[in-house]
Amino acid sequence: MTVSRDLAATPVPWFERVMVALFVVVPFLAVLVAVPFAWGWGVGWRDLAIALVFYLVTGFGITVGYHRHFTHRSFAAPAWLRVAFALAGGMSLQGPVIRWVADHRRHHKYADREGDPHSPWRYGTGVVALAKGLLHAHVGWLFRAERTSRRRFCPDLLEDRPIRLLSHDLAYAPVVLASMALPALAGWATGGSWLTALFWGGLVRVFVQHHVTWSINSICHTFGTAEFAVRDRSRNVSWLAVLSLGESWHNLHHADPTCARHGVLPGQVDPSARLIRLLERRGWATDVRWPQPARLDRLRALT
């Protein structure tokens, strides 16, 4: 099977490339401003609380929604919760849900081989090649000219009318605005400054979230430990576990992609799995694919 079948026949539109550049560059510039900003005026607890709340809401939108639910179908959810996850994940400014899922399913199909959209081993194993590959895996792949075929990788989501509509560029624009406007509104409503709330809860929060997510593509396919047998170079990186909400237990995830819990060994903190457990207890998450001890033992025995 050739890689070209996984790509759209048309290149990525120019306006989409501009938007990707804005999503990457503007939060980065905000962080550069953050250092003298915090040094001169400080940062209040209100702004940090707003940033944390929106980090968790949009972060779980990616890890539990975009990733474990939509991409790998680790659990089933009612329509209202699926829409909520699509909106929350969208506010992380990582793109509409179907586009994100298509790229990630393609990544699993070709992990660390030709066709993987963001493997750090793309250019080889030498020091210079790996440095180039890490940059590509972390952020460079976002600017590629081709687009992964949604019809090939996401036929199930294209048949889901609400999710298909939310993945349209015109529908995604208000989600992007909400990602910035809601933190500002929260700052104003709680008696603080809407501007500083926008800065910390919007721009800086997006910057941190982007680089944590991208680190799963780059760092977690280069460094770390492997306790389970996989056909690629996915690894566990413990120091990223809390920031990534459990996504950095990447080795098990590639060994058993549909598993709802990624941190399955003692001491492996997985906040996303805890949220799924809470949703299950409320009856909002069903058919949850929790780890099976026999399968885990078999995968560990193969290492």
Results as ranks from 00 to 15, higher is better:
114 E>L: 14
184 A>V: 10
281 R>E: 12
225 T>D: 12
106 R>H: 07
284 W>P: 01
161 R>G: 08
31 V>E: 01
6 D>V: 06
30 A>P: 08
248 S>C: 09
293 P>H: 14
101 V>S: 05
45 W>V: 14
88 A>R: 00
14 W>M: 09
251 N>T: 13
107 H>D: 10
210 H>D: 06
299 L>T: 10
254 H>P: 08
196 T>Y: 04
188 W>F: 15
105 R>P: 02
32 L>C: 13
160 D>Q: 12
74 S>W: 01
62 I>Y: 00
240 L>H: 09
157 L>C: 14
215 S>P: 08
269 V>F: 15
193 S>K: 04
84 A>G: 07
135 L>Q: 03
184 A>S: 10
89 G>E: 00
215 S>R: 02
25 V>S: 11
164 R>H: 14
209 Q>I: 00
132 K>C: 13
124 G>V: 03
233 R>H: 11
254 H>R: 12
82 R>V: 02
109 K>M: 10
18 V>K: 01
303 T>K: 13
195 L>C: 05
202 G>D: 05
37 F>S: 12
201 G>R: 02
296 L>T: 14
196 T>F: 06
107 H>N: 10
151 R>P: 00
109 K>L: 14
27 P>M: 09
126 G>F: 09
137 A>H: 03
52 L>T: 10
162 P>E: 15
64 V>S: 06
277 R>C: 09
254 H>T: 08
286 T>Q: 15
87 L>Q: 05
59 G>A: 07
214 W>D: 02
285 A>M: 05
279 L>V: 05
258 T>W: 07
206 V>N: 01
32 L>Y: 04
36 P>G: 06
244 S>N: 04
152 R>F: 07
35 V>W: 14
17 R>M: 07
195 L>K: 06
57 V>A: 12
149 S>R: 15
180 M>D: 03
289 R>P: 03
239 W>T: 11
42 G>C: 11
273 A>P: 05
253 H>S: 07
160 D>S: 14
294 A>N: 13
156 D>N: 12
197 A>V: 04
157 L>K: 04
213 T>Y: 03
253 H>I: 11
27 P>V: 05
149 S>G: 07
81 L>N: 01
10 T>I: 09
90 G>C: 02
127 V>D: 03
108 H>K: 05
140 G>Q: 10
197 A>W: 00
160 D>V: 14
224 G>Q: 12
262 H>M: 10
252 L>M: 10
283 G>I: 13
131 A>P: 04
